[in-house]
Amino acid sequence: MKRKIALVCAAAMALSLAACGNTASTTSESTASESTASESSATAEAAGEEAAASDFDNTQSITVITREEGSGTRGAFIELTGVEEKNDAGEKVDNTSAGAATQNSTNGVMTTVANDETAIGYISLGSLNDTVKAVTVGGVAASAETVKDGTYTLARPFNIVTNGDATDPVAVDFINYCMSTDGQALATEDGYIGSDDAAAFESTQPSGSITVGGSSSVSPLMEKLIEAYEGVNPNASIELLTTDSTIGVSGALDGTYTIGMASRELKDSEVEAGAKATVLAMDGIAVVVNPANPIEDLTIDQIKSIYTGETTTWDAIQ
């Protein structure tokens, strides 16, 4: 009996030890493998794609990364790729596979994709950096130009939402600023696609304070716009709350926010309730994979089959 207890104890111990030992030893290992990865990618670039392809085990299953329900990025992505489809009853159904790992931030998606060579995710084009690789969609690379001329189809509007027309003088002045040459230039600078034919801005210098809230995708841009606007009109103070597109619209409707932010088109129900959207800028959605992944191009259908869980390994992509 006693010996049994001891054995169980020892076994449990050994197990947890093995676990800890692994993590401790692999930190150095992973840094090592990182450096080899970067080396191999360098050689791969030199030797052409085939070398990289042979290095990448494409029989591995795909780690599908998605955003949480309610995220504007997810809403736009599933709509544009057809992952969201109408069922027989005419309801829209989000068919994202239940096996997709959920991250509640752009960074969560990027970090996961950067650390997992089998992963695929989608992020706002403005947030794209070189830790991940954006694939071309149907042969078109994601960029400000392709979004603007409409050839890159995975694009969505950044909307500012008001309950009917804005009445608050600060809100009106601020919206005018956002839509002016200055505001649009800020958007373009950040990698979003602003309008070219905007008018110059002249502030009426109203004083007061307003609250802007909503989509976390829009808020980095909004933060810059607010900073710049407060420089132009020191009388105004604007509070920025980061939540989500859905809350952004409902907040604008119930008065919690003077101006709401949404990173998707308004739903019919929201328009009926009196929400009015103004397109602040366009944003592309980049489909990103790990830099070690040799794949360069995916069609919309391929993306859809990955996200609905029909395609589960990289070699199954034709």
């Binding site: 239940a98 096996g99 997709a100 790992a101 959920t102 939540t243 859905t246």
Partner: peptide, 27 residues
Amino acid sequence: NQTWMPQGLFQGLRTMTSNIVIEMGYA
């Protein structure tokens, strides 16, 4: 944070707490 039924030791899953914190701000 996958919404599927837990699939094994080396697969992701979602707990009640993470379900709340992931979706609350957006619901």
